[in-house]
Design a binder for these strands. Sequence first.
DNA 1: GCAAAAGTGTTGTCCTTACACCCATGC
DNA 2: GCATGGGTGTAAGGACAACACTTTTGC
Lengths: 246, 246
Amino acid sequence: MPETLKSNIVPILKENIDAIQLVVSYPTVPLTVDCVIFGFDENSLKVLLIKSDLAQFYGKLSLLGDKVNANEDLDTAANRILLERTGMKQVYLEQVHTFSQPNRHPGGRVVTSVYASLLNIQDHSLEITDNELNWHPIHLLKEMAFDHKEILDCCYAWLQKRIQEHPLALNLLPEKFSLRQLQHVYEAILDTKLDRRNFRKKFASMGLLIDTHEMEVNVTHRPGKLYSFDYAQYQLRKKNGVGIDF
Amino acid sequence: MPETLKSNIVPILKENIDAIQLVVSYPTVPLTVDCVIFGFDENSLKVLLIKSDLAQFYGKLSLLGDKVNANEDLDTAANRILLERTGMKQVYLEQVHTFSQPNRHPGGRVVTSVYASLLNIQDHSLEITDNELNWHPIHLLKEMAFDHKEILDCCYAWLQKRIQEHPLALNLLPEKFSLRQLQHVYEAILDTKLDRRNFRKKFASMGLLIDTHEMEVNVTHRPGKLYSFDYAQYQLRKKNGVGIDF
DNA sequence: GCAAAAGTGTTGTCCTTACACCCATGC
DNA sequence: GCATGGGTGTAAGGACAACACTTTTGC
């Protein structure tokens, strides 16, 4: 090897060896991703669950989860799991929290990063239904496999908070929706009743709804206008509010 | 082995073996915790950093981090790291995000969960200063080791948001503080100027400050009243606001 | 007496809330 | 014609933003 090349390469290699030796000295843990997939249908908030594979949790419901592959980052893993389990892609996914209680899995220590996602049930019929994949009303869930009830509660609290500062709710609706549908989404998620006039005024004054000039069809009452959400306009406006409120 | 004992134990063992085999089949990754420790001093927001150990990052600043031990959960690891590095305990720590880019560490894949913490610099003099542990003004930081600048930016954004809905700022001050000190904390974190009268009115109307009937001493101007924060009162009040604001 | 910060009120604007009636459609 | 939800306005109260002067202390 020529001297000039040697003098350049050798220090780099040595540095890498130090770094590699350091990392090799670390304990390693099995890492998974679990997805909490919220949907909305028949005026109620639902979550997509499967039946657990494990005998310990026979009959119990479980979140969609899987191991993280070698050299796969968590965001990629979450999207992959969602695709594999439901066939859906291009879904809004956000990391919520990482759970690490050493005894949370009966097979030994497993650390899991949890992602939450919101889907429009109408536009995403379930084509894969392995492990009895299905939507479950969120308020009827009691026991679940692993610590998944705790995780779900955490994600539901996250959703309630997040939806008030980010237009996530619109992912739960078809592209064109009525104000009644929108209000029902908020009422289901926040678990409260909202005043119809104030709700409509609020959204009207935000200027983020586009009137499609279409009307609802096949409803058993007076049809309402259909709107779509102005994502472009939303992106343009930076939230720069400064307020202290606790 | 008596039959009765056998019939109880064997099925349990079989279930465990299935679960264990499943977990053993998962890839494992080295897991670390990094701590972003904010402090406040001389009217400026600071963060506690060390010099990196690795030759690749010679002279660069690094967050306080370490491997997660076997059977140690992340919260425990974060508290341990803070204790080992700074000698401090009983600190408010919150998980912010888990970073998992496969190439974020030159020694190979390392996943890190990041915790943020807020300390009062005055009450926590640094007794351990290994690796040149020191406070650094947050606005003067440029390059850092690993992806730590990106992590820091993420945590700073988290802090700005969090401080407006949670009285975190009070962790940055001594137990007794003046309204000027409190306002300076908010101004430093939010990187903005606030109206003094409105700020004082805001906190006065919240009813969460206790007048200690003491005054500042050793200041070069008219001394202000010292207050303490009414944590008990704060805990009693549930935030039940429902508002849509984006 | 000067510098530096403490302390204090009012006003206008905007946002939120509470509340009731007529209208369009399906059946 | 009846049931169901669509569509609309107003008034009161509360929160926030803008704004200036006097007081107290250290030096």
